[in-house]
Design a protein around this nucleic acid. Structure first.
Length: 130
DNA sequence: GCAATGACGCTCT
DNA sequence: CAGAGCGCCATTG
């Protein structure tokens, strides 16, 4: 599928999607990232929609923390963009459980819970111990 | 290969 | 701060 038809059997999902899942997986608990951020880190600048499409078909087998991915509504403010009333409720509950606080309007302050992809990579071989 | 769709993003009103 | 419109990218039919 997907015009490239490389992997005939199994196939599953495009390698690009896999990269997106990998990015979502590295989001620290208690923080949230936007689709645009995930897409850019995955190698798709401006492909926020693609990240969403990938999340929509997120395989539960990977235990992907998709609930940490939110839609950037305004500068410094994000909100759950899931169209599913049930899934959206689950995501809010999960985030709240992780310590994320929602405003009265149901938005999240990125300046407080926004994930900053900077600290990662101790370089000196010193692995960060979680 | 073209047309339509979508868990988005930014700007203007 | 909230709502509506247009644009961007990849997948699917």
């Amino acid at each position: 599928m997907a015009t490239r038809g490389r992997r005939s059997d199994g196939d599953h999902i495009a390698d690009l999607y896999r990269r997106i899942y990998q990015v979502v997986r590295r989001i620290p608990r208690g923080h949230v990232a936007t689709y645009g951020q995930v897409a850019e880190l995955a190698g798709i600048p401006g492909g926020a929609r693609v990240a969403g499409a990938a999340m929509r078909g997120c395989p539960p087998d990977l235990g992907l923390p998709w609930h940490r991915v939110v839609g950037k509504r305004s500068r410094g403010m994000a909100k759950v963009s899931i169209h599913d009333p049930v899934g959206g409720g689950i995501q809010s509950s999960m985030l709240e459980e992780e310590g994320v606080i929602f405003t009265a309007a149901g938005s999240i302050r990125l300046e407080q819970f926004g994930w900053l992809p900077t600290d990662d990579r101790p370089a000196r071989g010193r692995r960060k111990r979680r």
